[in-house]
C-alpha cells in the first residue's frame, strides 16, 4: 500500500505540475485568509449594537477602489494563465529518440507492447531517465491512461490515436488507473508501472517471451491484407511506394501538403479517399472494419521501419 498522505514525484513532469500546484495553493490560501479574515473581522466589529464607528463611508471606498481590485484580480489571473500555459506548451511534444510503446485499452484492461514486441497486460516496465512515448488507442469506449505519480493523464479514444509522454525519475512501482468512466469494471481497470534502471530494463526485456516486434507483424499484415499487391515495388498498379515516406512532407492532389506521420498513415488506411497523394488516382479501398487497432499500429510501425531502412542507404 502506498502512503495515504503523499504522492511521489516520480517523473520530470511531476515536479513542474507540483510547482504550479503549490503556487496556486499559496495564492488560494492567502485569498481564503483575506476573505474569511475580513468577514470574521467585520462580523465581530460591526455586529449589531457594537460601538464601532459607522457614519459616512470613507472617501477611498469609491468606484476607483472597485476598478482597482478588478484589475488586480484580472492581472494575477492572466499571470497564472501565462505561467501554467507555458508549462503546458513546453511539455507538449515527446523528445526525439523516445522509447515508443503502444497501448491498447479495452473494457477492462490495458495492453502494452514494447518496440521489441514484448507484450504486457495491465503492466508496463519502463527504464529510468529515458523519455517514454505512449501511442494509445481504444478498442471500445473512451478510457483514460492515468499515472498519478507521473502527473500524466490522457484519454484513450476509439477511432483515433492519442499520445502522451513522460520521463520517469524514481525507481519503483506506481499505480496505473483508468480515469474515464468506462462501464461495469471501470474501477478495476488498473495496472502497475514499474520503473527500472536502464540495464535492468534491458535484462528484463531479454527475458520476455520471444514475440515478433511490431514492424515484423506489420510486414506480415502488409502481405496478408493485400497491401503489397499495389504498394510493393514490383506491382504494376499505380500506387505510391512507401519506402522512406514516413516523416516526409507529402504533396496532395488538392494542393495541400501534409506530413506523413502516424495519424496520416492511419487515416490513409481507413479513409484513403480523404488525402489522395498528388499524381495518383483515388483507387485504394478502405480497410475500415478489416483491421483492429493493434493491427493498424503494426502496419504503421512497418511503414515507419521502411523509412528507417531508407535512411541507411
Amino acid at each position: 500500500m502506498n502512503s495515504p498522505f503523499s504522492l511521489p514525484e516520480a517523473s520530470t513532469h511531476a515536479v513542474t505540475v507540483d510547482r504550479i500546484f503549490y503556487l496556486l495553493l499559496v495564492l488560494s490560501g492567502a485569498t481564503v485568509v483575506l476573505v474569511f479574515g475580513l468577514i470574521l473581522l467585520f462580523a465581530v466589529r460591526y455586529r449589531r449594537g457594537s460601538s464601532a464607528k459607522r457614519g459616512p463611508m470613507p472617501e477611498f471606498l469609491r468606484r476607483e477602489f472597485e476598478i482597482g481590485w478588478t484589475l488586480a484580480t484580472l492581472l494575477s489571473f492572466v499571470f497564472l494563465f501565462w505561467w501554467a500555459g507555458s508549462a503546458d506548451l513546453s511539455s507538449l511534444a515527446a523528445p526525439a529518440g523516445s522509447l515508443e510503446i503502444h497501448v491498447v485499452a479495452k473494457q477492462w484492461m490495458w495492453k502494452t507492447q514494447h518496440p521489441s514486441g514484448a507484450r504486457e497486460i495491465n503492466a508496463l516496465h519502463v527504464p529510468l531517465g529515458q523519455p517514454v512515448h505512449l501511442l494509445m488507442s481504444s478498442q471500445d469506449v473512451i478510457h483514460s491512461f492515468f499515472v498519478p505519480a507521473f502527473r500524466v493523464k490522457q484519454d484513450v479514444v476509439p477511432g483515433r490515436e492519442t499520445d502522451i509522454w513522460f520521463q520517469a525519475s524514481k525507481l519503483g512501482v506506481f499505480p496505473l488507473l483508468c480515469a474515464e468512466y468506462c462501464g461495469t469494471d471501470h474501477s478495476v481497470m488498473r495496472g502497475k508501472i514499474t520503473v527500472m534502471r536502464p540495464e535492468d530494463y534491458a535484462r528484463w526485456l531479454v527475458q520476455q517471451p520471444e514475440g515478433d516486434d511490431l514492424a515484423h507483424e506489420g510486414a506480415k499484415l502488409f502481405v496478408s491484407q493485400g497491401c503489397s499487391g499495389c504498394h510493393a515495388g514490383s506491382s504494376n498498379v499505380h500506387a505510391p511506394r512507401l519506402a522512406g515516406i514516413y516523416g516526409r512532407m507529402v504533396q496532395l492532389s488538392d494542393g495541400r501538403t501534409v506530413k506523413a506521420d502516424d495519424g496520416y498513415i492511419r487515416d490513409s488506411i481507413l479513409q484513403p479517399k480523404r488525402d489522395v497523394v498528388a499524381g495518383y488516382d483515388a483507387i485504394m479501398p478502405s480497410f475500415k472494419g478489416l483491421l483492429d487497432d493493434g493491427e493498424l499500429q503494426s502496419l504503421t510501425a512497418y511503414i515507419r521501419s521502411l523509412a528507417e531502412e531508407g535512411s541507411h542507404d
Partner: peptide
C-alpha cells in the same frame, strides 16, 4: 482546474 498542467493531473 483552469491551469492546464494541474487540471491534467
Amino acid at each position: 482546474l483552469a491551469s492546464i498542467p494541474v487540471d491534467v493531473h
